[in-house]
């Protein structure tokens, strides 16, 4: 389901289906290219999107097809903004182990939010943790990365 909002943003509501997530990412990538975002910028945004939407489907909605993921995004020449909401209980990013700590380097999971932070300018997890906002701000035709995460919640992801 797709709708265009008065502020120019576009909203999609998708089931907890990874194929639907892939299709939505393809749509966003196409629109970023139409807005002259560069390959390198798109690589980072695509990776952050993948991590965020898969988190919402797998960890938030627990792959429950009856639960939806609501995605709202706005692409402008100078920035990309996106909200991703799931129907899960949420989580607190502060509870996640540091993936760069030596003792965690060999953990096969737990790098999603870290990658989002690196590639996006800002990442906010809104309490209780089932709504994520990410932004990528471009300067002089290039985007700023190495964002920081704000907010907390009270679940697991």
């Amino acid at each position: 389901m797709q709708s265009r909002e008065p502020d120019g943003s576009v909203e999609f509501v998708i089931p907890s289906d990874l194929n639907e997530a892939r299709n939505l990412q393809d749509i966003i990538e196409t629109q970023l290219r139409q807005c002259a975002f560069e390959d390198r910028e798109i690589f980072g945004i695509r990776l952050a999107l993948e991590e965020a939407i898969v988190n919402a489907i797998k960890h938030g909605n627990q792959m429950d097809q009856g639960k939806k993921v609501q995605v709202r995004f706005c692409i402008q020449p100078h920035r990309f903004d996106i909200d991703i909401a799931d129907e899960g209980p949420g989580y607190d990013p502060e509870d996640l182990p540091d993936p760069l700590a030596d003792e965690n380097l060999e953990r096969p999971c737990g790098r999603g939010i870290f990658l989002m932070r690196h590639y996006m300018t800002e990442v906010i997890v809104h309490p209780p943790g089932n709504l994520l906002t990410m932004s990528k701000v471009r300067t002089n035709g290039h985007t700023n990365g190495n964002g920081h995460v704000n907010g907390n919640g009270n679940g697991k992801k």
């Binding site: 690589f43 695509r46 990776l47 898969v54 060999e106 096969p108 999971c109 790098r111 999603g112 990658l115």
Partner: peptide, 17 residues
């Protein structure tokens, strides 16, 4: 390979082990 996700990294870590 042009893109990979953290889930793919996890598989490579397990393979390495």
């Amino acid at each position: 390979v042009e893109y990979l996700s953290s889930a793919a990294l996890g598989k490579f870590i397990t393979l390495n082990k």
